[in-house]
Design a protein around this nucleic acid. Structure first.
Lengths: 348, 348
DNA sequence: CTGAAAGCGCTTACAG
DNA sequence: CTGAAAGCGCTTACAG
């Protein structure tokens, strides 16, 4: 004999059941309206403390998890933050990303990663695809991008923070440091230690690499060595092998060179290892410095003198700034300069 | 005198206008119903070729971009694929991720990255948060996880591919190689070159590291050297500095050691540099091998003998397999073994 | 092969 | 401080 009590009635109108615990379920359990549950859970507007508690309890009891898609559709704002970086093969950007993620995830945001490969068209494509997801915020590397990409960002109205460079563009937000000042500082270190034939060797040639080169020129000019400016610029991507090859080439083609400023530690590490192989004394024959202070630079033989860049702190601060923007809170320092540090080790 | 022609009428019922081009707009422009547009654009079911073309043209003309949130809500499947990796500071996983992303993005999927830090509780938390987004698919590192985490995956019904290890668990999908066989092979290489006191030195101690250690034991046992098994296992994370310290420690505590198998290239590279600093001849005094063939290993002095692991190919194949699963297509090889390669260089 | 109706699970905008 | 109504932009399930 079947029980006459029906515990669940299948409504004939209900075409699709997902089996999910919804706001409505929580509302019913708490004896309030769905909208009150929504407000109580988001902490938005004032909800009577007593109701708030009842709602929280019901939500926990039922194991309620808000549906991000429904939330995004209704509010036209997702919980995604899109982060655009040039390359995943550069430790620098991975550390930046890691720091951003560590800051954003606990606050309930999801990070979407876009890799642009230093390519304007790719950046546009990635932006277009990300913007379709109506991200709550955007973090992009540097200021230099195609007008189309800039227009996409601008037109989207999505809060955006630029990282790695620092530039006081009106209305824009950034967290970074002066690449140019850093390039000048490390070159100055070489000059201060008596070097007079300093070369700047760079690969990839992204905007930040070129800015470091300007800093290098600044230092030489200021030292009255404008005629000694020696730049070796290679468009191909950086690698340790390339660094080794470039060291060899510079010493062959410009044997008077007594110091080399490599635009990044990958090249410099490769140069140090090549010097070991070739029997070139560092810093005796030639001083070598890099940029970024990547893992391993302190382990090289000799240890590498370089510029330590605060990419983790940049990631953390950019995330903080973005969260303020996303919440509509005021940002006190829209262009945050986190500086850099010349790390003196044995190679120069 | 204002024009009497009204070009846009604000409907009083419309509470919220997003200004977005919607399916309905495309439908109206193409003179069909919204559902036909939906089907034509997704290529689902049969739509008359002529209509299909008209819809495509209208969509392009209006610059229509589907709203992923609406799509996810209606279909209860998002276009997200969640990828869980232990650490972002390990190049291995970053390369894996890059390969996955390169394969998935062109197919219209977005990658969500979760970092577990080799921590069971973190993995559970990340899974729970990701699963709330109803991802279309899941890629996780290895098979070893907490019962709770495994239950979350299982219970979600989301297609899942395991990477890096290969294990023929019924009903599970994986792409990788045998860590144990690889550990055995590189140890065998050392034995083949005449080494008789081979130590295995490992850090981090994740499951894959331990499997490599089993392979090491296999090789020694098979060579009748079971009594020579020497394992140094350190729980702390791998780093070049740690590799150097461990080399020193092993040579001090077990001076008969004539070969060291480091569980990864980070440790091995650090050991090579420390040897240089200490004046320890490699491979003369002690042979050194690593694992993974990371960037830089071919640049070391001496160049590092190691095991090349196919993490990029693993990423690509895992993405392919997952796409088949997400589309409900059959997968011919549910456990795909991509092998590995012993790379003989100068250090052993 | 095409469509009208209903619904996915939330939030907005308006009242009170 | 709380709620009833409408709507976000799609897809599902059912007809024809």
């Amino acid at each position: 004999m079947p029980s006459s009590k029906t515990t669940s009635v299948a409504s004939p109108r209900r075409a699709r059941a997902t089996g999910r615990v919804t706001l409505a379920d929580v509302a019913q359990a708490a004896g309030v309206s769905p909208i009150t549950v929504s407000r109580a859970l988001r902490g938005e507007r004032a909800v009577a403390p007593e109701l708030c508690e009842r709602v929280q309890a019901a939500a926990t009891a039922l194991g309620y998890v808000p549906d991000p898609a429904a939330r995004a559709l209704a509010s036209s704002r997702s919980s995604h933050v899109a982060v655009l970086i040039p390359k995943l093969s550069n430790t620098l950007f991975v550390e930046l990303l890691d720091a951003v993620q560590i800051s954003l995830v606990p606050a309930g945001y999801q990070t979407l990663i876009g890799v642009t490969h230093y390519d304007a068209a790719e950046e546009e494509a990635v932006l277009r695809s990300f913007l379709a997801h109506r991200p709550a915020g955007l973090i992009v590397t540097g200021h230099d991008r195609s007008p189309a990409a800039a227009a996409l960002i601008e037109g989207s109205g999505v809060p955006c923070v630029h990282v790695m460079e620092i530039e006081a563009e009106p209305g824009s937000y950034s967290v970074g440091f002066s690449q140019r000042a850093a390039g000048r500082a490390i070159t100055q270190h070489l000059l201060d230690s008596g070097r007079r034939h300093v070369a700047y060797v760079a690969a990839q040639l992204d905007p930040r690499t070129l800015e470091r080169g300007e800093g290098y020129v600044d230092a030489l000019v200021q030292a009255g060595l404008a005629d000694r400016v020696t730049k070796v610029l290679i468009a191909e991507p950086s690698s340790m092998a390339l660094g080794g090859a470039l060291l060899e080439r510079v010493l062959r083609e410009a044997p008077e060179t007594d110091a080399i400023f490599f635009c990044n530690d990958d090249l410099a590490q490769g140069a140090l290892l090549a010097a070991l192989r070739l029997g070139v004394a560092v810093p005796g024959r030639v001083a070598v410095v890099g940029f970024n202070d990547l893992p391993g630079s302190d382990q090289m033989v000799p240890t590498l003198t370089t510029v330590a860049t605060p990419r983790r702190e940049i990631g953390v601060q950019a995330a903080q700034m973005l969260m303020k923007l996303m919440r509509g809170q005021p940002v006190e320092t829209p262009n945050l300069d986190l500086g850099f540090q010349v790390v003196r080790r044995a190679s120069a």
